[in-house]
Write a protein that binds this DNA or RNA. Structure first.
Lengths: 137, 137
DNA sequence: GTAACTGCAAAATATTTGCATCCTT
DNA sequence: AAGGATGCAAATATTTTGCAGTTAC
C-alpha cells in the first residue's frame, strides 16, 4: 500500500518487507501491541532480532511510542502525525480493558493537566485508564 | 525499628532480615525503586532471587505497587495506608524527573477523572508526569 | 517442631551484539 | 556499486523454579 511506504520514506528508512508488515500491523490493529503480538500476528516467521530492531527504529523515528503499563509488559502504539523523532507529542489517554486485555488509544480524550507542587515543571504527561471497554461491557 | 516490623506483621509476613532492609529502603527513599536499585542500595549482597521474591510478595500484599513507566523499566513504590492486598487504591500522580531521573510520588496530587467515550467504564487510572523536579530546577 | 524464608544451582526467557549475506536505492 | 537491513549464532541479561538448609514463631 502506498501510504505505508510513504511513512517509511518520510522517515528516511528503506522500504523493506519486514518494516512494511510490522507497520501495517500497527495501522490495522486498533490497539497497542507487545513484542510477542508482533511475532505472532505478522503470520510469517520473522526473526526475533529483526522485530527488536524494527521496533527500536520505529521508536527512534517517532513512528511508534511506548505506552506506560502498570504490569511489566512493554506495549507500543502508533504515534499521531504531530510526532517528531525522539520527541513525541502524543497526548491522548490510553485505555486497557480488564476483560479482553486490549489496549486502546483514545485519540479524542486528551490528558488533563494537573497542578504540580511548587518547583516542579512538567514536560510531558501520560495517562492510562483501566476498566471495561465498549466491546466487553 | 518497630514500625517496619509492624507493617510486615500486619500483612501476615514473618519478619526477616531481608524484608526489613528492603522495606526500610522504600520508606527512607522518597522515590520509586527499580529492582537494580534494591540490589545495590541494600548494601549487603542479597541474593537476586530473594529480591525478586520479596518484591513479588510485597506487591501481592499491597505494601508496594508498580509504577507505570514509558520506558521499559519496572519501578516500585510504597502504597499508602488505604491499599489492600491485590487491590490498591493509590490514586496519586507520579513524577519522573528528566534530570536526576528520580521517580517521586506526588501524594497530594490526585489523578483527575476524564470523560471516556460511550460504553467505556473506568476502574482505575494512572498518571505519570515527566519534567524537572524541585531539586533540579 | 513446623511452616515459612533464603540461598544456591540451574532452567527458562528475554534482549543485545557481531558478522556474513542479501536487498534497497 | 554502496549502504543499509536481515538472519543466524552466540553472548548477555533477566526472571523463574526446585530443592536443601536455615530461621521465625
Amino acid at each position: 500500500m502506498v501510504v505505508i511506504e510513504d511513512i517509511l520514506k518520510k522517515n528516511q528508512l528503506s522500504v523493506t518487507d519486514g518494516r512494511k508488515k510490522i507497520l501495517e500491523l500497527f495501522i490495522s490493529s486498533e490497539g497497542a501491541l507487545a513484542h510477542a503480538d508482533i511475532e505472532e500476528k505478522t503470520g510469517e516467521n520473522f526473526d526475533r532480532v529483526t522485530v527488536y530492531r524494527t521496533l527500536n527504529t520505529f521508536v527512534e523515528k517517532g513512528i511508534i511510542h511506548h505506552i506506560p503499563t502498570t504490569d511489566n509488559s512493554i506495549l507500543y502504539a502508533l504515534c499521531k502525525d504531530n510526532c517528531e523523532a525522539g520527541h513525541h507529542h502524543d497526548n491522548h489517554v490510553h485505555f486497557i480493558c480488564d476483560v479482553c486485555n486490549k489496549t486502546i488509544c483514545l485519540d479524542e480524550v486528551t490528558v488533563p493537566t494537573v497542578q504540580l507542587p511548587e518547583g516542579f515543571r512538567p514536560s510531558h504527561a501520560e495517562m492510562v485508564v483501566n476498566g471495561v471497554c465498549g466491546d466487553c461491557k
